[in-house]
C-alpha cells in the first residue's frame, strides 16, 4: 500500500530525513518510535504532503503511485489520513459541519453526489457511539477550547468518519490520560481491517500496549536504525534510546 524509498527531505535547507525505506501492506500496523527530533513528525507531514517540506531524493508511493505532485487534499481523497499531533482550531465551524464538508469534498473528487443528510446522520451517530462521544461535542467549534484528550478523540472520530486506507497517528498518545488513551486505542482497533493499514508514530511504548503493532521501527537522525516486532518496543522502553544511538554510531 505505502512504499517509502530512500526518502530524503529537508525544510529550509535543513535535511531532516536522510534515506528512509519503509513498506506497509494492507492489514498491517507499523509503529515508528524514536527520540525527539529524530524526524518522526516530519515523516508524517511528508506523507501527507505538507508544502514546507521538500523531497530532495527518493519518494513516497501510495498504491504504486508517486505522490510527489499530488496535493494534500488529493492524497486525502486517495485515502490517506493524518491524525495531527497538534490539531488546529477553526472557530465557528462545528465538528459536524467540518466532517460534512470533508466527506462531501472527497465524494465530489470521486464523482459522487453529496452524501444524503439521513445517511450522514446515521454515520455520525454510529461513529460517535463507537468512540463514546457526546453528541453535544459535535456541535462545538472544531477543536476550540477542547482539552488535549478531546482533541485527540476528535481526530480519531474524523478518522472513523472518513474510513481511510492508510491512517497515520502522529503522537496521538501525547497529552492523553490513561482512560482517554484506552478509548482512542479501542477506536483505532475497531477500525483495523485487512484492507487498511495504520502507521503509529509515538515516543513511548505505552500506546503500543493497546494498539499492538506488527512491526516496530526505530527512527534516529532521519534514518530507520532498527526494525523488529513488538518486542523491540519493550526493549526500547527498558534500555532507552541511547543504546540504539550508540549502536547506530558504530
Amino acid at each position: 500500500m505505502l512504499k517509502i524509498k530512500d526518502l530524503h527531505a529537508k525544510v529550509e535547507d535543513k535535511e531532516i530525513l536522510k534515506g528512509i525505506n519503509l513498506e506497509l501492506n494492507a492489514g498491517e500496523v507499523h509503529a515508528i518510535m524514536g527520540p525527539n527530533g529524530s524526524g518522526k513528525s516530519t515523516l508524517a507531514s511528508v506523507i501527507a504532503g505538507k508544502e514546507e517540506f521538500e523531497i530532495t531524493k527518493g519518494g513516497v508511493f501510495f498504491e504504486n503511485e508517486d505522490l510527489e505532485d499530488t496535493a494534500p487534499e488529493e492524497r486525502a481523497h486517495k485515502g490517506i489520513f493524518l491524525s495531527f499531533q497538534y490539531p488546529v482550531e477553526i472557530p465557528g465551524v462545528s465538528v459536524t459541519n467540518f466532517m460534512k464538508t470533508a466527506i462531501n469534498e472527497s465524494r465530489k473528487a470521486r464523482g459522487m453526489e453529496d452524501m444524503p443528510a439521513n445517511e450522514m446522520l446515521k454515520l455520525i451517530r454510529e461513529k460517535s457511539e463507537m468512540l463514546d462521544i457526546d453528541r453535544k461535542f459535535l456541535s462545538r467549534s472544531l477543536n476550540e477550547g477542547f482539552s488535549g484528550g478531546e482533541k485527540k478523540r476528535n481526530e480519531i472520530f474524523q478518522m472513523a468518519m472518513l474510513e481511510p486506507k492508510l491512517a497515520i497517528l502522529d503522537e496521538t498518545d501525547s497529552g492523553l490520560d490513561i482512560d482517554a488513551l484506552r478509548i482512542v486505542a479501542n477506536g483505532v482497533n475497531k477500525l483495523r481491517s485487512k484492507d487498511n493499514a495504520v502507521l503509529v508514530i509515538t515516543h513511548y511504548q505505552r500506546l503500543l500496549e493497546y494498539i499492538v503493532p506488527d512491526f516496530v521501527h526505530v527512527l534516529h537522525d532521519g534514518k530507520i536504525v532498527k526494525s523488529g516486532d513488538k518486542a523491540l518496543a519493550l526493549e526500547l522502553e527498558e534500555k532507552g534510546y541511547d543504546w540504539l544511538k550508540q549502536e547506530s554510531a558504530v
Binding site: 494534500p72 487534499e73 477553526i90 469534498e105
Partner: peptide, 18 residues
C-alpha cells in the same frame, strides 16, 4: 483542512464563514 480532503479555496470559505 487540505489533509481532510478540503481544497484551499473551500478551506478559506469554511474558515471565513465560521
Amino acid at each position: 483542512c487540505n489533509q481532510r480532503g478540503i481544497d484551499t479555496e473551500k478551506a478559506i470559505a469554511l474558515i471565513v464563514n465560521g
